[in-house]
Design a protein around this nucleic acid. Structure first.
Length: 432
RNA sequence: GCCGGGUUCGCCUAGUGGUAGGGCGGCAGCCUGCUAAGCUGUUUAGUCAGAAAUGGCUUUCGCGAGUUCGAAUCUCGCACCCGGCGCCA
């Protein structure tokens, strides 16, 4: 479990990482709380030890069928004092825990310091962006009768969509293609639950993040009973990515060293409130509340982290290259890296309709941030170590559809199907 | 949703109110000239002391609350697993 020992053992690193993030996290307050907690814990332990000794004496008297009334009476004061101490200590521990669970990850050394967008660092480019496209995906697809956002807005609100006809098949083709590709690399396909309990969500992302991003579902026990429904507790959330469900999947488990790595290809819808994105990317299906995604996820030993980070990144590059999409990779700077992540490299595809590179996916290492909170360890020669967890988008389907459409739309009103998807589509052109 | 059975160390298991025991596996050491056994220790987590080896104390029997001087054990609530019934794509 997550403890302040981790904090104390790594305090210098943590301090400088928080500074690098420009974080307002109250680490000094946490240290002071912890100091006080430990002092009082020691005192409480002395009292408990005293109680246990006395209790043992009573046990011996009782075994000899002797009277222990006097001894029991003498314990009353001690008992009350311990109870009080336990309660106070518990309250303190709760505050410490709350802070600790939201402690941002220690940034990897390679993360550039600064604020986005200027400090994000391009590390690689591939392909030649088209000078000009045929237009935005929304116009193209609506005109072709493959997309209907107006009726979706009527029945569900902004940022929803109906896909129709060949666009549905293209969506499924992209997903299946990525799944098949990852299978050849030893990634096991996983279709996870689409809802997660809060208890586990806290272990994969900090509260601030998920309150902005997640939809809560379920209802109170009373309401469920009244309607004679099966109770779905109100601490359930729709997943924002398969990453979260797959990270939580092995919570509380202990692996032997050679169980690792575990490589998963998750497939799921992703539900996002996009709370902080009012007015941003409102056209079409570029930024939506619900999309399908294939997600790569790796559990590995500490020392294999960079090896699998490179592998995850390489997989997505190969997929995007094989789809013929020009892209660039950028390492997110300290001000742009998510709380729970130590390092993130975004892959940005070129979108001719916007005339710019935009995010297609995100490759991250959480190091032990998630496994410390979810209690996932492995045995290293008798020593228990926290597993490292890494994740990367393989393909976010709706975003990728936008990118494919804008890169492959022809002036005659058709869309060429990327070569690798032709076997899945059964045709090489949409709209003729 | 209802009825019954269950949840103890990484795995298996003993334990009906007196302070968690055994086996397997892992790790460390010892022994042994024969290939893999034997012996000893260790194997929930935290905390204090120590440079460390190590030692002390607390904690831990799915989770939470209660009864008790004392709870794996008794009571209540919850979660999950295995049967059976009901409902159901």
């Amino acid at each position: 479990m997550l403890t302040t020992k981790y904090l104390r053992d790594n305090i210098e690193e943590i301090r400088s990482s928080l500074k690098k993030r420009r974080s307002k996290y109250p680490v000094e307050e946490l240290l002071a709380l912890d100091e006080e907690w430990r002092t009082r814990k020691t005192k409480l332990q002395e009292l408990q030890s005293e109680r246990n000794k006395e209790s043992l004496k009573i046990s011996e008297l009782k075994k000899k069928k002797k009277d222990a009334t006097k001894q029991i009476a003498q314990l009353a004061d001690l008992k009350a004092e311990i109870e009080k101490g336990e309660k106070e200590l518990g309250e303190k521990a709760n505050r410490i825990d709350e802070l600790l669970w939201n402690l941002p990850n220690v940034l990897d050394k390679s993360v550039p310091e600064g604020d986005p967008p200027d400090a994000n660092k391009v590390i690689r480019k591939w392909g030649e962006p088209k000078k000009s496209g045929v237009g935005s995906h929304e116009e193209i697809l609506t005109k072709m009768g493959l997309l209907d956002v107006e009726r979706a807005a009527k029945v569900s609100g902004a940022r929803f969509y109906f896909l129709k006809g060949d666009l549905v098949l293209l969506e499924q083709s992209v997903l299946r293609y990525a799944l098949d590709f990852l299978a050849t690399k030893g990634y096991k396909a996983i279709l996870p639950p689409f809802m997660l309990r809060k208890k586990y969500y806290k272990g994969v992302a900090p509260i601030a993040t998920f309150e902005d991003a997640l939809y809560a579902v379920g209802e109170s026990r009373e309401a469920a009973q009244k309607n004679e429904l099966e109770h779905v507790d109100d601490d359930m959330y729709l997943i924002a990515t398969a990453e979260h469900a797959i990270a939580a999947m092995h919570a509380g488990e202990l692996f032997s060293g050679n169980d690792l790595p575990l490589k998963y290809a998750g497939i799921s819808p992703c539900f996002r409130r996009e709370a902080g994105a009012h007015g941003k990317d409102t056209k079409g299906i570029f930024r939506v509340h619900q999309f399908d995604k294939i997600e790569q996820f790796v559990y590995c030993r500490e020392e294999d982290e960079s090896k699998y980070f490179d592998e995850l990144l390489g997989n997505t590059e190969q997929i995007v290259q094989s789809l013929g999409i020009p892209y660039r990779l950028l390492t997110l700077c300290s001000g742009d890296t998510g709380h729970q992540m130590a390092k993130t490299v975004d892959i940005e595809g070129y979108f001719p309709g916007q005339g710019d590179y935009r995010e297609l996916g995100s490759c991250s290492t959480a190091k032990a941030w998630q496994s410390m909170r979810l209690d996932i360890k492995y045995d290293h020669k008798g020593e228990r170590r926290y597993v490292y967890t890494l994740n990367n988008t393989a393909v976010a389907a709706e975003r990728m559809l936008v990118c494919i459409v804008e890169n492959y739309a022809n002036s005659d009103g058709t869309i060429t199907v990327p070569k690798v998807l032709v076997p899945y589509m059964g045709k090489s052109r949409i709209g003729e």
